[in-house]
Design a protein around this nucleic acid. Structure first.
Lengths: 212, 212
DNA sequence: TCCCGATGTTAGCGAGCACTCACCGACATG
DNA sequence: CATGTCGGTGAGTGCTCGCTAACATCGGGA
């Protein structure tokens, strides 16, 4: 908790140097807890999951989780920080390799669709449980998200310089609502198009809504 | 709890006949609790609000809430059932007075935008806390929502008979994600366009995404 | 006016849960 | 091989919170 900056950094460094057997196991377990937690939080909500559940999901029981995270809130923080980091890094990489704004926007959309479909649990938790974080972690996640949005706004601004940035920012948020709807409707077990088809429809709808 | 059908009906009937002073006060208080609960649930999540909070928000304290609702879950159920009822009734009224599919879809969009902007709290709770309901209430809300979606799908199907209903249903869900994004981004206190402008942009984006 | 039922209060119960503690076995390092 | 560290366990601990109980107050129909 607290600022969780040192915490996250230390963990990241630890993850990057698992030269010993013990260290590798620890890194694996930490990752397993995060994956399981994302699924459980998405299914039952942050408050509906106990520390006991978190441990049980990876085969240990209860207080063992505290060997990997200082508390329940830190697990949520790690999930949300990881997600917003991944999105931001991905967007910057996409923009670096885009020759023109048209290609950039298309790539941003494709990248976001891929992430939403691959990490549906994380998307749901990100939408839903941001305000459960303490001030420090919430600020950090929000800051990462804001930078991600600004990349979209800048790209849109180059395509439609006639429009106010305020409107483009609003449109970007609406587009995220559209893109992030898939994980939610996926939970409702209605019949739905094949995965490849979904990708195409989502990209088409998002482009049309942004450029309309 | 249980099926909450008799519960809701009895309350609705009670609300419709407040001929005595006491009855009027009771109806008012019930409504006040529901409004306050929607706001609080939207801000802190269902689990983050206590019965004490609910009472305090309307000037009574704690267990007095049990004079109006059999339990915390019943408050949430009343909010969600009310919302899905309102949406379904509104959609059917809109469709009854629409001469052609084009006008119908435009009116559906406008109606949904109005609801999302007017009842932002309820939209957030609806998106977020459906799975907190017990089986009976959840089934009822889902059934109402399904009928609402089918009105959209039928309207879309008349405009684009070339498309599979599965695809149209998926598109409708994505459009709801777009429309319901506004209450979420409204919580983030960024500068945003004036309310009238928002309406136009949302309608434009939704139409474009559905018909693209 | 009288009395019943409805609406409120405060006190308290019981369950659930995040988190701590004392301890244990195993792995890695000198 | 000895030893310190580390990841794990089971048994608690204290707090929060939904809900109930017992009692006060008051509006309104007879």
């Amino acid at each position: 908790m607290a600022s969780t900056l040192d915490e996250a950094d230390a963990a990241a460094i630890a993850d990057l140097s698992p030269r010993t057997e013990r260290g590798r196991l620890k890194a694996d377990r930490r990752a397993a807890i995060l994956r399981a937690a994302a699924t459980l939080f998405a299914e039952r909500g942050y408050a509906g999951v106990t520390i006991e559940d978190l441990g049980a999901a990876v085969g240990v029981s209860g207080p063992a989780v505290y060997r990997h995270f200082p508390g329940k809130a830190a697990v949520l923080a790690a999930i949300l920080q990881g997600a917003s980091r991944t999105l931001l890094d991905g967007a910057e990489q996409v923009l670096d390799s885009s020759p023109d704004p048209d290609h950039a926007l298309r790539s941003l959309i494709r990248f976001h669709v891929d992430f939403a479909l691959a990490e549906a649990d994380v998307i749901i938790v990100q939408d839903r449980e941001l305000e459960q974080l303490d001030r420090g972690a919430r600020h950090e996640v929000r800051s990462l998200q804001r930078r991600y949005v600004e990349h979209w706004v800048n790209t849109l601004s180059r395509l439609r310089p006639d429009r106010a940035e305020t409107e483009l920012r609003f449109r970007a948020h609406a587009a995220f609502g559209l893109l992030n709807s898939t994980p939610h409707s996926a939970r409702i077990p209605g019949r739905r198009p094949a995965d490849g088809t979904i990708r195409g429809i989502l990209e088409e709808m998002t482009w049309a809504s942004l450029m309309s």
